[in-house]
Design a protein around this nucleic acid. Structure first.
Length: 280
DNA sequence: CGCCGTACCTGGAGGC
DNA sequence: TGCCTCCAGGTACGGC
């Protein structure tokens, strides 16, 4: 599941279903899913452990186990960690199954970029060391953001995607945040004034919070190539309906009606409104 | 340290 | 129908 909001919503969804559960069985169906150790030893570390907490850091899911060790899951682009009451129907993209004392966890991943780690007690912090501040935490201050930007010659859009600067922002919410802040994505990061950095920080936080409040998530089937963003409820609209610029090339800007344009930056697409986001 | 390109994968869309 | 190229949410790594 892609970006910070979707991982946050998943974390909140899984938390009540997983806390207190015991892992009875582990089945790893594909080499390469487990980092730094064999699937066999990974399975042995998890089996019979109880899950005591479920949290998120950047786009990583962190499950704390009752012996003080940690189970990390990164879904990357098409990975889906999903809870089921009963064993799910077979999927060609199923990579792992975890039998619990109540329910089943599955991990499917069409592109197989997703990864899992088991970390012994105390090692989880070193795993997070290279990550910058959480954008929704107080530690991500305007001063810190503005100072960090001042040292970078890359475009502001690409700076937003650098997890050392601020963690958890991906390609979609980077475009959305810049539009909301009315800042052109190609502006050199160091050229932003303090006022602009402040505006952008507020926009990032508002965009992420809004997506979380809507219950943004993607279908856990693993069969969709394109992400399918949903609100929480049954008949709720797609979160994608609220995107103001992302994947909307040639469509009118919701703010001013000017056609949205697409830009290539570092092999990724950026969407923006040339009228609202002036001045590269 | 910063920046850039590439690699990891599969499959859908669209052009011819 | 088939074949080809491009594109898709993320991050790590090597080279400069």
């Amino acid at each position: 599941m892609p970006e910070l909001p979707e991982v946050e919503v998943l974390t909140r969804h899984l938390k009540p279903r997983l806390i207190g559960r015991r892992i009875d069985s582990v089945k790893i169906l594909r080499d390469g899913l487990i980092e730094e150790r064999s699937p066999r030893s990974f399975s042995a570390r998890l089996r019979t452990r109880q899950i005591v907490d479920v949290r998120r850091r950047a786009k990583l899911l962190r499950l704390d186990l009752d012996d003080g060790s940690h189970w990390l899951v990164h879904q990357k682009m098409t990975g889906r960690l999903a809870w089921h009451r009963q064993r799910p129907d077979p999927s060609p993209h199923l990579l792992a199954l975890f039998g619990l004392d109540r329910g089943v966890l599955s991990f499917t991943d069409l592109r197989r970029f997703g990864r899992m780690w088991w970390l012994p007690p105390g090692e989880v912090q070193s795993h997070f060391e290279r990550l910058g501040p959480e954008p929704l935490d107080g530690e991500w201050t305007v001063d810190r953001f503005h100072d960090d930007l001042a040292r970078r010659t890359i475009a502001i859009k690409q700076a937003l995607l650098d997890p050392r600067l601020v963690a958890g922002i991906g390609n979609i919410y980077a475009s959305e945040s810049l539009h909301r802040a009315r800042i052109h994505p190609a502006r050199p990061a160091a050229s932003l004034t303090r006022a602009e950095a402040s505006r952008l920080r507020r926009a990032v936080r508002a965009v992420l919070k809004r997506a979380i409040a809507l219950g943004s998530t993607v279908l856990p089937t693993g069969d969709d190539v394109r992400p399918v963003y949903y609100h929480g409820g049954d008949s709720e609209p797609l979160v994608a309906d609220e995107f103001r610029v992302y994947d909307r090339e040639h469509l009118p800007c919701p703010a001013c009606g000017t056609p949205i344009e697409r830009l290539r930056q570092g092999q990724r697409s950026t969407y923006f409104c040339p009228a609202c986001q002036e001045g590269s």
